[in-house]
């Protein structure tokens, strides 16, 4: 690894030379980190490589690191499966709508909570954070959703988990620390209402936090599985994750059907799992550079005591 070579040049850089012990320590550090890097990276590369290899190569275990007999048979199978396409479409819908609802609701509560002029904000904050500590549990929540006649509707995936308490805290901290009080005072003197101030001043100034909220909610919604499992019954409403489960996990058989004409189909089914994993993770993968940046930012805002 290139990383190990860089250690050699380091002692000359510091003003005080590293002792021999320190250099050994640094060497070990680089070796450990390289091992961690390989351990995380290898499974990811293996999956991607397998997904673009031929069904026979994958089924006979010929793929180790790089693709063998490059073929896109797995992807063809994935995209010719109606169930997957429906799930993909549904997941896109849930992610877009769910994220929109979540971000609006979060801002709607976090902004007033950040204002000194909002009376009872301490009580309201306690009201919210208590839900962080205690919950009614699965069945009582299920019965509420059922009572609202949301079972087996798209709303069941959009509403019951629309607000994350932690995101409210982060957004509130942001509004508190980056929207100057004087700005609001000035706007107030000019006769600007609170909602207008929020829409035309606060929102444009809060792009970083909006990005954080959008990405956190979007990733959560895209990956969500549990709510769909308990609230949905009709297959045409299933998000991708639920479809994935039935294809990737429930059909997973190490067993061996011996009819020879089935071997080919079986190989293809096995290969499809790799392609499906890649396709299912694609939206998150494409956005990953942004996601990484804003997730880290969100965590850092959250860690400042607000």
């Amino acid at each position: 690894m290139a990383a190990v070579q860089t250690t050699a040049s380091i002692p000359t850089r510091g003003k005080i030379r590293d002792s021999a012990g320190d250099r050994i320590f640094l060497g070990i550090t680089y070796i450990l980190l390289s091992l961690i890097l390989v351990a995380v990276l290898y499974p990811l590369i293996y999956i991607v490589s397998s997904s673009i290899s031929s069904p026979q190569a994958v089924a006979s275990g010929k793929v180790w690191l790089w693709p063998v007999d490059i073929s896109f048979a797995g992807y063809k199978t994935v995209f010719s499966n109606d169930q997957i396409l429906v799930g993909y479409g549904n997941s896109l819908f849930y992610t877009c709508c769910g994220t929109l609802i979540s971000v609006i609701l979060t801002v709607a509560i976090a902004y007033p909570l950040s204002k000194k002029t909002f009376f009872g904000r301490n009580v309201l904050m306690m009201f919210i954070t208590f839900t962080f500590l205690f919950s009614g549990g699965l069945i009582p929540t299920y019965l509420v959703v059922k009572g609202l006649h949301l079972i087996d509707t798209r709303w069941a995936l959009l509403l019951p988990n629309a607000i994350f308490v932690f995101q409210v805290i982060i957004a509130r901290t942001f509004f508190k620390s980056s929207i100057p009080e004087e700005l609001n005072d000035a706007a107030e003197i000019d006769g600007c209402s609170d909602i207008r101030f929020l829409l035309s001043v606060v929102i444009p100034l809060s792009k970083p936090i909006l990005a954080v909220l959008t990405l956190v909610y979007a990733v959560a919604q895209w990956n969500a599985f549990f709510d769909a499992l308990i609230y949905l019954k009709s297959q045409h409403l299933y998000p991708l994750q639920l479809t994935l489960r039935s294809i990737l996990i429930q059909n997973f058989s190490g067993g061996n059907m011996d009819a020879s004409e089935q071997v080919k189909r079986q190989e293809l089914a096995y290969l499809m799992k790799y392609s499906l994993i890649v396709v299912a993770s694609l939206p998150v993968l494409i956005l990953y550079p942004f996601i990484q940046r804003y997730f880290v930012q969100g965590m850092l805002i959250g860690s400042i005591k607000g």
């Binding site: 509560i109 009201f127 009614g136 549990g137 069945i139 009582p140 019965l143 509420v144």
Partner: peptide, 20 residues
């Protein structure tokens, strides 16, 4: 502004607690 979010917390967080 806080009415819809508060409604959310009452419906999906506090009502389940009462349902317990």
């Amino acid at each position: 502004l806080v009415i819809p979010p508060v409604l959310f917390f009452i419906l999906f967080k506090y009502l389940p607690m009462a349902n317990a």
